[in-house]
Design a protein around this nucleic acid. Structure first.
Length: 505
RNA sequence: GCCUCCAUGGUCAAGCGGUCAAGACGUUGCCCUCUCAAGGCAAAAUCAUGGGUUCGAUUCCCAUUGGAGGUGCCA
């Protein structure tokens, strides 16, 4: 399989997998799978200072939960391992030296401090800083080797041509070309001996036979430089697919206090920014724990900045996505994460569940506030399914069943049902004995008996039923009407709450 | 500042020289109705601006404006 497509998702373990990363992983997976190829996970942990403990495990977990099964990776093995860059550390210098011998790179003995000073100076003058190739010109290779042998710290820099153009071709963005003189001689091997991303990605992608490189557009402007590296090695560059970032619209807040920063008129200021953990934007894990379905999240995230060709269909399982995915449908500009649409997708997936599956998913949430022994949770689930957008909101929707909330008497005044405290008082006085007379406390009985009696009052149904529901639930909105609520509460609770409300009217 | 990329409603978007410029979310109204949902129906809302090219531009080119990214011994 010489032409087998091999893609890789290569996160650095600096925290959880946020939605932008998840989408990159998803597209990378889909690209491989639609060609029947392999999807590989590689951990890019060459920046040891930024590494967060436990982040690697969290990545594995998130990938599994999302259904992004990788064919090769640190915890599943493969023929091109190791798949963690720090475990490949001995590999990189060898290639770097090969490049040095070929003239594509050189040793640099300038210290971080010297470089920093130069950069500051250039910045003060408003110029773009670029390393001046001092060590390339002033330190011959033999001398460099001697100094290194003597233990002097050094880095290896890419030797970018000073003239001409560098370019690459992207599946989405097409041909991208830059003047070499705008490019800096970036560090390939750091003083700690580890490679920078700039070098490691090229080496590893080549060594792992990666055919398609997918990554964020933050690499778009440095990609020509990577191609220079491929050329210097005499390697064929991979096919590139750069993906725009995912943004979120929020309000401007203080980074420390998280308090909104107001403008001169005292209003909050809307801003669009990249999704980030720093501001507490939800990760995949967060959304799952809030009660979003993974299928809904994946479906939503797939459609964020991408649309399938030739169809208006919006619902796709992972299998569907593999079939229908087409990189040409990716939008080139950043997409804004829209919580409303995610909620809708989630609600829609919930409505499409079988009642049994719904009940199974909902009961743990309901049990947080309701004793399963005391309530007919199956009936409650039936009522709740069409009203559930996010499972995490369930407890707040039903807690009034467990305990009667503080009754707001203003609720007895309602325009639509023509209710006033007076009509409510009358209505409740009328309904109470009827309810009390019902011995078989079923929803159907409650409904039939009360509905049959209402015409005697000369009031419309709502004028009688609105106050009843308010009296026993204390809520303006409930997941069902007066009869459903009365049934769920049971006879004792219903009568008790009714009496308490009547006493106050 | 410099470099790269991008630009259709509030959001996600279809479109790829001739369309009354799809669809979805959200919004608004109506219907249904014992509340809220769900469901049904309807509506408002988009081609950033200015120049070209063309018989004809949302579509091609240029500029402007706006946005994103890069400019690290971070990825």
């Amino acid at each position: 399989m010489a032409n087998e497509v091999r893609t890789r998702f290569a996160p650095s373990p600096t925290g959880y997998l946020h939605l932008g990363g998840l989408r990159t992983a998803l597209y990378t997976y889909l690209l491989a799978k639609k060609h029947g190829g392999k999807f590989i996970l590689r951990i890019e942990d060459t920046d040891q200072e930024r590494e967060v403990p436990g982040a690697v495990e969290l990545i594995y977990k998130s990938m599994r939960q999302a259904g992004l099964v990788y064919d090769e990776g640190p915890d599943v093995g493969g023929d091109f391992g190791p798949y963690i860059q720090t475990q490949r550390r001995d590999l990189y210098p060898k290639y770097a030296w090969e490049l040095v011998e070929k003239g594509g790179a050189y040793c640099c003995f300038c210290t971080k401090e010297e470089i920093e000073a130069q950069r500051k100076e250039a910045e003060a003058k408003g110029e773009t800083w670029k390393y001046n190739k001092k060590c390339l010109h002033s330190v011959p290779l033999e001398e460099a080797k001697r100094r290194i042998a003597a233990g002097e710290p050094y880095v290896i820099r890419q030797n970018v041509p000073t003239t001409g153009k560098a370019s690459f071709d992207d599946m989405l963005y097409g041909h991208v070309e830059v003047d070499c003189d705008t490019l800096d001689d970036t560090v390939l091997i750091k003083a700690d001996g580890l490679p920078t991303y700039n070098f490691a990605n090229v080496i590893d992608d080549h060594l792992m036979n990666i055919t398609h490189v997918t990554r964020g557009t933050e690499y778009l402007s440095s990609a020509p430089k990577y191609n220079l590296l491929y050329e210097a090695f005499g390697w064929t560059p991979p096919t590139y697919l750069h993906l725009p970032p995912v943004m979120i619209e929020s309000i401007l807040v203080d980074k420390q206090t998280k308090e909104p920063i107001l403008d001169e008129n005292g209003n909050t200021q809307p801003i669009v920014r990249k999704l980030s953990k720093r501001y507490g934007d939800p990760s995949f894990e967060d959304l799952l724990s809030q009660g979003y379905l993974k299928e809904a999240i994946i479906n939503f995230i797939a459609l964020l900045g991408w649309a399938p060709k030739g169809t208006n269909e919006e619902f796709f399982s992972m299998e569907d996505l593999v079939k229908v995915f087409d990189e040409n449908g990716i939008n080139k500009s950043p997409a804004i994460f829209n919580t409303e649409k995610l909620r809708w997708f989630n609600a829609e997936y919930i409505r499409r569940m079988t009642p049994e599956a719904y009940a199974e998913a909902a009961k743990p949430w309901l049990s947080k506030v309701l004793d399963p022994e005391k309530f007919d949770l199956d009936r409650l689930c039936e009522l709740l399914q069409a009203r559930t957008e996010v499972f995490g909101e369930l407890p707040g929707m039903v807690d009034f069943l467990a305990e009667m909330p503080e009754l707001d008497m203003a609720l007895f005044t309602n325009k639509k049902s023509k209710s006033t405290p007076e009509t409510s008082k009358t209505a409740l006085a009328f309904v109470r004995p009827i309810l009390e007379g019902i011995t078989d406390w079923t929803e159907a009985n409650l409904h039939d008996v009360v509905m049959e009696a209402i015409p005697q009052t000369g009031m419309k149904n709502a004028t009688v039923l609105w106050p009843l529901r308010i009296a026993i639930t204390g809520r303006a909105a409930t997941p069902g009407g007066a009869f459903e609520m009365a049934y769920l509460l049971g006879r004792d609770q219903t009568m008790k709450r009714l009496d308490a409300a009547m006493a106050r009217l």
